[in-house]
């Protein structure tokens, strides 16, 4: 009995040191807004993300200033007037999903997941509930997600004079090519 107990304890330690966590520093996040007068697109390829397959947890952390726009002036307005990057430098997401045993074992395949979590932008946290995929191909883990968010829910104000240029709803896409992380 005591031997089993000891074995269990040992197993717990061993299981914890297994490769469950994957991280990327070059996550691509794009947002796209389409309004009557103007389409706005911005991209960052410097988002940090980590996923824990054993626990079914995922997190994203990015600097708002890493978003690049085609028009520099638009980028300045985005940082200065809308998301106030000096005051709120980061966007953060932390969520959970239900990993299948096959995903935990990193078997090749595409895994559709329901991710629930909380997204913080502009100092405001909102719940996010979205579909995402994790795909495993010859030991490489890739995550993809696409969801919509409303600008207003993050307390980002759009003055009426530019309302025709900036959409209320923004489509966010994320692509993450993870590497093992210890």
């Amino acid at each position: 009995m005591k031997a089993i107990y000891s074995l269990m304890c040992l197993l717990m330690i061993v299981s914890l040191s297994a490769q469950d966590r994957y991280l990327t520093r070059t996550g691509e996040i794009t947002f796209f807004s389409t309004a009557p007068l103007e389409d706005i697109e911005a991209k960052s390829d410097k988002a940090l993300s980590i996923v824990d397959l054993a626990k079914g947890q995922v997190a994203v952390d990015m600097l708002m200033k890493s978003f690049e726009f085609e028009k520099k002036l638009m980028q300045e307005h985005f940082n200065e007037n809308y998301v106030e990057s000096d005051k709120y430098p980061k966007a953060k997401f932390s969520g959970t999903f239900n990993p299948s045993d096959a995903l935990k074992a990193m078997e090749d395949g595409v895994y559709e997941l329901d991710v629930k979590g909380e997204l913080t932008i502009h100092g405001v946290t909102n719940p996010v509930d979205t579909k995402a995929t994790l795909s495993v191909e010859s030991g490489k883990l890739k995550g993809e997600v696409k969801f919509n968010l409303t600008v207003k829910s993050f307390d980002i104000k759009i003055p009426s004079v530019v309302a025709k240029k900036i959409a209320e709803e923004v489509e966010v896409t994320g692509i993450f090519n993870y590497e093992p992380y210890n």
């Binding site: 991280l23 940090l48 980590i50 947890q57 952390d61 600097l63």
Partner: peptide, 9 residues
Amino acid sequence: LLDILDSEQ
């Protein structure tokens, strides 16, 4: 996990 990312940033 966010704390890990914070230290990795």
